Simulated scan of single mutants.
Amino acid sequence: MSYLNNVVGYRKDLLINRSVVKKENYVLLDPDGLVKNVIPGFENCDLTILGSPKLGASFVDYLVTIHADGKNELGFGEEGVETLFYLLEGDLEVKAGEQSYSIKKGGFVYCPPGTKLYFQNKSGEAAKAFMYKRIYKRLEGYEPYVVTGNTEAMEWTKYEGMEDVLVKDFLPKDLAFDCNFHILSFKPGASHGYIETHIQEHGAYCLNGQGMYNLDNDWIPVQKGDYIFMSAYCLQACYAVGREEDFAYVYSKDCNRDVTL
């Protein structure tokens, strides 16, 4: 067995873990103990599956480390499936369909269904990325398209008018897209304005800092490196804790579509 944190053998303490798994409701995954998964096409990569339908999600989230000369020449994505590739660390050469891009930390590529994403690490240093895939829900008269950008170059905007809670949006406000991705950042002591309850589900990867997250009215401590799944109608909100570093996470959201009966 190969582990995400590369720690094997006996520990010097009790076997404990902060993960909480309540399938079809919410999940917190502590990176300690998560395994590396083998998936065809990912060469010289360490890849861990995070959220998935087996937890109750309608999507799949991944965390992948692309080592020097790591690549995917088979392509990530398939017909009917939309994907997102978000670079957390490093430099990477990426191809979406026939278009090539050089991306750095904060760079992302959204691929509509049927457009595969390929990548290669020529930098000589390891890179790290967050990936997402989901079956696209079509809307007559609209076609999604490739979107690229870099969150490091984006301006923060106030989240619901709050000075100490800021957000960045990945995708344009366009009905062609049935999902979006955001980074939400809280200054220490800041919080959501209220406990949210909604039909949208989220997969969230914690980028910085520490927080206390309300998940279905259970207050759970979270920190950088943790993964959170929130199902539809799961009560949710958080406070940022800690002394200096902002608490921030990248997350997905389904949107712009009616409910199918």
Rank of each mutant, 00 (worst) to 15 (best):
F177M: 03
Y159E: 13
E143S: 10
E163P: 06
P172T: 13
Y159Q: 09
N150R: 00
A153E: 14
F177K: 03
K158M: 15
F170R: 06
E143P: 01
C179E: 13
K168T: 02
P144Q: 10
L171S: 11
D164Q: 13
E143M: 06
M154V: 00
K168G: 02
T157G: 03
Y159H: 15
V167M: 03
E160D: 08
G149D: 09
E140Y: 06
M131I: 15
V165N: 04
F130A: 12
Y136E: 00
T148W: 02
Y132F: 11
L166V: 14
V146L: 08
K158G: 14
G149F: 05
R134M: 10
F170M: 13
E155D: 13
D169Q: 11
A129I: 11
M154Q: 13
D164E: 15
T151W: 06
K168V: 01
E163H: 12
Y159A: 05
P172L: 01
D164F: 10
G141T: 04
L139S: 11
M131H: 04
R134W: 12
V147C: 04
F170P: 11
K173E: 10
L139Y: 04
Y132G: 00
K133V: 07
T148H: 04
E163G: 02
M162T: 01
Y142G: 03
E143L: 09
E163M: 04
V147Q: 04
E140I: 12
A129M: 06
T148L: 02
R138D: 09
E160Q: 15
L175C: 03
L166D: 03
V146N: 09
A129W: 00
W156M: 07
D169P: 01
F130H: 09
M154F: 10
K173D: 09
T151Q: 00
D169R: 10
L171K: 06
A153T: 10
F170L: 15
Y145N: 08
A176P: 11
K137Q: 14
P144T: 01
F170A: 07
L166C: 04
E140A: 14
T157C: 01
R134G: 00
P144S: 12
E140V: 13
N150V: 10
V165I: 11
K158E: 15
A176K: 12
Y145S: 08
M131G: 04
M154W: 07
T148Q: 02
G149L: 03
P144W: 14
Y132T: 11
D164P: 04
